[in-house]
Structure formats: C-alpha cells, structure tokens
C-alpha cells in the first residue's frame, strides 16, 4: 500500500456522508493556505514566520479551501442541496492521503490530527467498493524511512485504558465531533521527524460567496461547492 493508490481524482468525494459519485465534477480543487508570512529583510534575505503549533500538533498549520464544480450536477442535486440547506459544520472527504509532519521531543507520545480532522475510515465506507486497506494511515519515523510503524485502530475505551505496545501506534476510533488522535508505544525522540499520512474527513464551512451559478444551458443545473476548513 502506498499513497500512490490515492493519487489523482479517481475517487468521488464524500460530502456529509454522501458519496458524490455518478456525475463527474468538472472542477476539483484543493487550495491550502499556510499560517505563515515571509519577511524580506533589508539585505534582500527572507525569513519566514510561522504559527507555532500546540504540543502534539503538526508543524505546519494549513487552512484548506475545497472547491467542487459541476457544469450539471445531475442526480446529485437533491442530495447536495439538502445538505447545504443546513448550516455547518459540513464534512468533506476526498479519499486522498494528506501528509502531516510532527517533531518528537522525547516525551510526547500522543499526537493529534489538525483540529476538526478525523480518519475517514472511522466514519465512512470507501466509495465504489474500494478496499479500506488503501486508505489506511501511514506512519513513519524519519523523513525517508521505509519502515512503517504498525497501526491499529482501537476503541476509545481501550485507547483510554490500555497501553500502546512499544513499536506500534494506536489511532483512537473517532466518534462524533472529536478530533482524531494517535499514540505511540514509545515517544519519538528529540528532533525525530514523524511523518503521518492520513485520509481525513475534514470539518468545513461553506464559503460565504460559494453560491454562484451561471445557467448557460437550459438543460444543465450547474453547481459549485466551496468549502473552507473550519
């Protein structure tokens, strides 16, 4: 299994638990803005200023914007409109691996996904009958390590009460609105880089100006969903 299995826009996204399958979307765009700024110094050099992460969170903090556009939303219209008829938070899953970087400090064994993220496999069934195994998280220690840390999904009760075996990582099986978290059996060492690729379902809100349609064709029902990460 590798992230190559989720490359490309082959799999339909799941929006608020509903697979947007059956009608191909013309636009599929994920934009990410990082919370950072670049400062140009007087000698022309550049420094960057980043948001410091809270302990156990990824080193880079992104704020995503998701755009899905159909020239004709077709049979998805009723399902999409029904979900958008209610305010957020909405949840979107593109069934794609997203990679997060953590820094070990020798003491922190438990880490979290970004706020509002949970593993898609914990709440959704992969569309199109695809095997769940291809959407499993990948955890490696070291940038180019080939060895993946064995991953287990455990129930919240067991996650809270039991000890993660050394050399493994436990993902808490997320329920409700809880942000996903995971725990190593042995805390990554100081300055050790932990690379985690997950397929998340992300908590979103509709963008304020996403309701724009151009009816160029009397037979088509255009639709565009713009979601911003909450």
């Amino acid at each position: 299994m590798s992230t190559a299995d989720t490359q490309g826009a082959r799999t339909a996204a799941t929006f608020d638990g509903y697979p947007l399958a059956g009608v191909a979307a013309d636009l599929w765009e994920v934009a990410a803005a990082e919370l950072k700024g670049n400062v140009t110094m007087a000698d022309g050099s550049v420094r960057e200023q980043r948001l410091a992460p809270l302990p156990g969170l990824p080193q880079v903090t992104w704020r995503h914007t998701f755009s899905l556009g159909w020239a004709h939303v077709g049979k998805l219209q009723r399902a999409i409109e029904a979900r958008l008829a209610f305010p957020g938070a909405h949840r979107i899953c593109f069934w794609k691996h997203m990679t997060l970087g953590y820094l070990g400090d020798g003491t922190t064994a438990e880490m979290s996904l970004p706020a509002g993220w949970r593993l898609a496999l914990h709440v959704l069934t992969p569309p199109d009958g695809l095997p769940a195994a291809r959407y499993e998280p990948e955890v490696r220690i070291g940038l180019d390590s080939l060895d993946l840390v064995p991953v287990s999904h455990v129930a919240p009760e067991l996650y809270a009460s039991d000890v993660t075996p050394e050399g493994e990582v436990w993902f808490e099986r997320t329920t409700g609105d809880t942000t996903g978290r995971f725990r190593f059996g042995l805390a990554p060492g100081v300055d050790e880089r932990v690379v985690v690729s997950v397929v998340p379902e992300i908590r979103c809100l509709t963008a304020g100006d996403s309701e724009s349609r151009q009816y160029r064709d009397p037979h088509r029902e255009p639709r565009r969903i713009v979601l911003v990460e909450a």
Partner: peptide, 8 residues
C-alpha cells in the same frame, strides 16, 4: 533569531 521562527 533565525530564518524560520514559529510564533504564538
């Protein structure tokens, strides 16, 4: 002091 500093 550095070219990449995190702030909060």
């Amino acid at each position: 002091d550095g070219i990449s500093i995190q702030y909060s």
